[in-house]
């Protein structure tokens, strides 16, 4: 564990000793819970419709596939006209695109970013690397199946998929959301232990709390 995460005693103003335990103090440890949908079906349908038409992608490119997302902002593809935009902070984003291969080091950051996003949240695996390892199938450092570690709603195949394929994938995701089938966040909460076990199996230096939001 890194030094700044160790438990330590800090001298406060006025000579008071303050005990700091970063893992407890800086994070909220409460595990995620299953969040029920709205009471009435009409309201939930309205919400799902709004969610599907307002997809905010977390601006976190995890692998080479991130380069395929940039053209979507340009005049040629212009994803904004479908209500898709990029947000720089996980708090505001509701879609996490795992763009291509995911090394173990990045996986750790991806998990933390994912956990900071708010329910409902969606994960799209982009490229064959997220499906079965792709061309990194024998690498010592990249995971093979993304759905072992995060609940994935949709995969977009290809190495790399073209921006058109991404747009098509987002359209399919919209259908999933509108039908109310994209409940990845609740799935994550339900199978929390299984996901954590899988994550801890590959992340050897686990120096964060189990749930870091």
């Amino acid at each position: 564990m890194k030094e700044e995460l160790q438990k330590r005693i800090v001298k406060g103003p006025g000579g008071v000793d303050i005990e700091v335990e970063p893992l407890r103090d800086y994070y909220c440890e409460a595990p995620p819970t299953v969040m029920p949908a709205a009471y009435s079906k009409i309201v939930e349908d309205l919400f799902n419709w709004a969610r599907s038409e307002s997809i905010w992608i977390l601006g976190f490119g995890t692998g080479c596939g991130a380069i395929e997302m940039r053209p979507l902002m340009t005049p040629r593809f212009d994803a904004y006209r479908y209500g898709i935009q990029w947000r720089p902070t996980p708090r505001q984003a509701n879609l996490f695109v795992i763009s291509g291969y995911l090394s173990v080091k990045t996986l750790k950051r991806a998990i933390r970013s994912y956990e900071q996003m708010q329910n409902p949240k969606y994960v799209v695996g982009l490229g064959s690397c997220t499906i079965n390892g792709g061309m990194y199938w024998d690498s010592y450092n990249t995971i093979k199946r993304l759905d072992d570690y995060l609940p994935v709603d949709l995969y977009i195949t290809g190495c790399m998929p073209r921006p058109e394929a991404l747009l098509q994938g987002f359209m399919d995701l919209k259908k999933l959301i509108r039908a109310g089938n994209a409940e990845g966040a609740n799935q994550y909460a339900e199978n929390f232990k299984w996901y954590k076990d899988n994550q801890k199996k590959v992340i050897k230096d686990w120096d964060m709390p189990d749930y870091s939001w």
């Binding site: 969040m35 029920p36 949908a37 709205a38 309205l46 919400f47 709004a50 969610r51 038409e53 307002s54 209500g83 509701n94 708010q118 329910n119 409902p120 966040a185």
Partner: peptide, 12 residues
């Protein structure tokens, strides 16, 4: 839409 979406986020 963004407004409805943000109000409909379940956890905060």
């Amino acid at each position: 839409l963004d407004l409805i979406k943000n109000y409909s986020i379940r956890s905060s």
